[in-house]
């Protein structure tokens, strides 16, 4: 399946019935994007740096209880509440539907995080540090954000850039599934798919047409680019 669609609107589809809550995506995200580690005290203060987290819900009454998991990341809203509140335009919308964050422009007012209904923007309250030997695994593609900067999921923009460059050097369009964020690549049950929503034949576009689809807080009108799928499988008769 190749996508030669001229316009790109990046989107992600997460099948919650496939998600086992293992947390591999969280680890992959942390490693890929040079996200600093948070200690116990940081977590207790609610200052954990995670671009992607697993939300856990309990369903049913004891003893028939089961856990449901929901990977929560930046929804890359088309009508993003974080963008208009930034006084220095560090948070902006790209032509490809991504919700950008320019770290060297950010002055750390934290308006954007306060206006985000999904609470997926994280703020560097301290200078980032890694215990030895973890600092050896930092990716050279990404600069480490310093104290006082707001950061968030970028759909692995460095991978998008590289994929586009490779396609351009071979004088062709991007293929469907060629660009994968670290979370989608890592997910063992393959719950996360990433691709171009503007190409009707792409995997994400086909999955996004599923009757099982829903988006988070749809009533807020933020028009997220992350689409979740739930229900209708064999474990949900009727």
């Amino acid at each position: 399946m190749t996508t030669e669609a001229k316009d790109i609107r990046w989107g992600m589809v997460i099948d919650l019935d496939r998600c086992t809550g293992c947390g591999a995506c969280v680890t992959a995200c942390q490693a890929e994007n040079n996200i600093a580690l948070t200690d116990q005290q940081g977590f207790a203060q609610g200052r954990n740096l995670q671009w992607l987290r697993i939300e856990r819900y309990w369903e049913g009454e004891f003893p028939h209880v089961r856990a449901r998991f929901l990977p929560m990341l930046c929804q890359h809203c088309d009508d993003a509440p974080c963008e208009p509140v930034c006084p220095v335009y560090a948070s902006y919308h790209t032509a490809e539907g991504l919700n950008g964050q320019v770290y060297n422009r950010c002055v750390g007012t934290r308006y954007c995080a306060n206006n985000c209904p999904y609470a997926v923007r994280v703020f560097n309250f301290t200078d980032p540090s890694w215990p030895e030997p973890l600092e050896q695994q930092l990716s050279p593609d990404i600069t480490v954000r310093s104290r006082g900067v707001m950061e968030k999921c970028s759909f692995c923009i460095q991978r998008i850039r590289r994929g586009k460059e490779e396609a351009k050097l071979e004088n062709r369009g991007l293929r469907d599934g060629e660009v994968q964020p670290a979370c989608a690549q890592t997910c063992p049950p393959g719950a996360i798919s990433f691709g171009n929503l503007d190409d009707p034949n792409s995997r994400v576009a086909r999955m996004a047409r599923s009757p099982r689809r829903f988006r988070l807080f749809e009533d807020l009108g933020t028009e997220p680019s992350v689409i979740y799928l739930k229900g209708g499988g064999h474990e949900h008769p009727g």
Partner: peptide, 8 residues
């Protein structure tokens, strides 16, 4: 001249 072309 998109910001994210060069600033990532």
């Amino acid at each position: 001249i998109d910001c994210w072309t060069c600033h990532i």
